[in-house]
Every structure is written in C-alpha cells, then in structure tokens.
Design a binder for these strands. Structure first.
Lengths: 217, 217
DNA sequence: CGTCATCTTGATTACGCTCAAGCTCCGTGG
DNA sequence: CCACGGAGCTTGAGCGTAATCAAGATGACG
C-alpha cells in the first residue's frame, strides 16, 4: 500500500476518548482489500462502522450502471448510519484498509446507551450536513467549481501541505456528477492557472488558497 | 387560498398519537403568508417546526443568487432539523400556511425526553434518506428523468388521483438543478407522450404510471 | 523493459442554458 | 361583463458547457 493514513481521529470529531474507547472495546477490527465491499446496497443496516486506517466510499448504482458516490470516509469517521432498515448505498474500500465493525444492539446492551445515542445522532447530523452541501454542489455548481470545491474540502479534511488522494478519477467524477474527462480537464486547468500543483495524479499541493476558495464559492 | 391541504399527518409518519399530542400541547401555532420566511440561513437552529397546513420549502442561496432547494414539506412533516448550531438552509412558506413551532429545550424539560429524541432521530433519518435520493437525482439523472421523478414522488406523497402542486416552476427548477424553461419543456414532453395530463399548470394527473416509474428509474 | 490500467488531451456532438417572444391565467377596474 | 395588465408559464432559436468518442501519455508493476 503506497498511501498511508494516520490512525487518530481528527480533532473535529466527537468520537473522542470516552465513547471512542467504548467503540474500540466493543468493535471488531476487520481488514478490507482495495475495492472490497464493506456492505452492499439493500443489505440490512444493523452495523456501524468506523474507519481505522485507509479510506472508504459509499455509492449507489442505477440499473444501467450510472453511479453516484455519497461520500468518502477517512480514519476516525463513522459510516454506515444510512437510515431505514436497509442500506441505500453500498460501501467499498478505496484502498486496503482496516474498519472497526460494531453491532448496534451489542452496543446498546453494553450500557453506553445514552452516550451511544448521542454519538450516532452527532454522526448522523454531520452526515446530513455534508449531504446538504453536496446537494448544492451537484445542483448548482459548474464543473470547475465542483472540482475546486472537492480539492478544497479534501485539503481541509486532511490538513497537510501536500494532499494525497486515495480515490481515482472515476470516483471523483461519480462524486461530482461529472465524467473523468471533465474532471481531468478541470484539474489541468486549475494547475495551468497556478492554483494547484500536482506531483503525480494522486498528490497535490494548493498554491493559491484564495483563488481556490473563491472558485469553491 | 385556492389550494388547500388536509391537516392530518399521513400514515407513514411516526408523529402519531402520543408524541403528536405532546408536540401539539407544547408548540405554538403560527401563520405564515406565501413566500414568508420561517427561518433564515445562518439563524440559530434551536426550534423545531411541523407543517400543520400549507407547504414549505427549504433553500440555500449562493452569493451570486443561484439557489438550491433542499426539500418540500407538507402537513405532518417535521422540518428545521438541519444539523449544527445554525441553519444552512432557510425555510419559506410555499403558500399561506400554518406551522407548529416548538422549542427544543422546552420539549426536553416537558419530560418527553426519550420519546422526543426518537421522534427527532426518525425525522432526521428520513431527512437524510430523502437527501441521499436527491443526490442521485441531481448527480446522475437527465432532465427528463428528474422531472419524471419529481412528479412521481409528489404523487406518492400526496396520494390522490389528481395532484395539486403548491410550488411554482422556479421552485421545481431549483429543486431539480434545472432552469424553468427546461422544466417546462420536459413537462410538455411528458404530456405529449400521454404520460401525465395537466389541468392548468399547477394540477396534474398520471395517465401512465408504468411509463412514469420507468423514467423515474 | 514491456504491459496494462489509469489518466490526459483532442475533436466532435448533444443536452440543457440563455435570450427572446408569445401565451395563459387571474385579479382589477372600467 | 369584458377589457386591461401583469406575473407566471410555454415555446422557439441559437449557443455553450460538459459528454462522448478516440488517440496518446503516464505511471505502476511484474
């Protein structure tokens, strides 16, 4: 595995010490290979997952193959909270990764009842918030703005100077509602305008934060 | 007001007897005129709302005026649960309507703690679910499919033979990520194909459920 | 070093947007 | 009761952004 991710949850997360420990104690660590399915569309949704290392995407495929990616998840993120008895989206490993898997019922029985409820509620709220931002992006942004927003967000989430991208162009395209060709063109354009700089197609550095933020709108 | 909506919550709602009553007792009924703001973008989000009669839209406006509509709400629906301390979307009355307004803290104090938490959780989950469907629509559906999906859903939510639409074309367009012209063209197209039939621009009837469902995909 | 998947770039097409005109539906006032 | 006016909706013509189709370039890996 060429790309590696730190294991610590990021500071913005509520999944801190106390409940984090509870999850750790109760959960089972599982390893998934790149592109392996964590759970499938229409599977029962009675498990909760947390990324330990690596990265995950959730996606939904239409009968004719068109795909929409719901979101990407990084170490510390909870996922699999999609509502209803069954998953609407499937989840796959973006790269080799380790996932902490928890049974909801087991957690409840373990007494962390209230704490757990809060944890899930927070994660669900954050999920909803991100999904709403995603709506605006898909519905009302241009290709260039979409790509700029994507890079900007990615840099924010994993705050480092140079950012590694665990996903391929097709994943980006399906997240942004574009084609890989358009994504590629926009990336070239942003690089041409000296707003970002790529070192290989999976790693970039922001050269002009203001310009990027302006495009992300 | 030419269009009127029934006051009873629809059957699919959890907000049934017990908690429904609690909400009724605790909340304040308020009347809003067409296009009046229920709450604004960036306002504090410590209230919960339920549509009593009429209909509501939530929307988000970009600095240059582009608008994305989050969802439409009908009698019985809870809204205003957007996460975080502040609203990301604003809410406006689609037509003259009556809204039940509740203070979260007051509700908690009233003892309905657990019940209330469940109610909010359910509403949030449903919200997330609908938002995820919306993602797929915005990201990967064609104009025709978007409009077909919209009509189909509207008919499902308000199950009557002929369906009244409380929203104008601009609202539809901003929900679907299209322009009013494209929405109008697609509606004409669907009517031309004998899939739906319009009696005036705010009322329609589905003539071919299968075809509509197929387009909605 | 060769092979294959992934990514980029180019040429062309098409879907949906823009701009513009006309139509329909209502409310208002003569 | 009908004429007028205006907002909202529909339709048309032309355009532009992103999709499609098609080569190349790059890069990872055996």
């Amino acid at each position: 595995m060429s790309i590696s991710y730190a294991i610590e949850p990021r500071s913005s997360h509520v999944a801190a010490s106390a409940t984090g420990d509870l999850l750790d104690r109760m959960g089972v660590r599982m390893a998934f290979a790149k592109d392996e399915e964590v759970y499938g569309q229409d599977e029962d949704a009675d498990l909760i997952y947390r990324v330990v290392s690596g990265a995950v995407r959730t996606s939904r495929v239409m009968s004719d193959g068109r795909r929409q990616i719901g979101d990407f998840y990084y170490p510390g993120d909870l996922f699999g909270l999609e509502p209803g008895p069954e998953h609407r989206f499937s989840a796959e490993a973006l790269c080799d990764c380790v996932i902490l898997v928890l049974k909801r019922t087991a957690l409840k029985a373990a007494g962390g009842e209230a704490e757990l409820a809060n944890l899930i509620m927070d994660a669900t709220m954050r999920e909803l918030q991100r999904t709403q931002e995603h709506l605006l992006l898909l519905g009302r942004k241009t290709a260039c703005e979409k790509v700029a927003t994507f890079l900007s967000e990615l840099a924010d989430r994993r705050d480092a100077d140079t950012v590694d991208m665990p996903m391929c162009r097709q994943d980006m395209a399906d997240y942004l509602g574009l084609t890989i060709e358009t994504v590629s063109r926009m990336l070239s354009q942003l690089q041409g305008a000296s707003i970002v700089e790529f070192q290989g197609c999976r790693q970039f550095r922001i050269r002009n934060h203001d310009a990027l933020a302006r495009l992300a709108a």
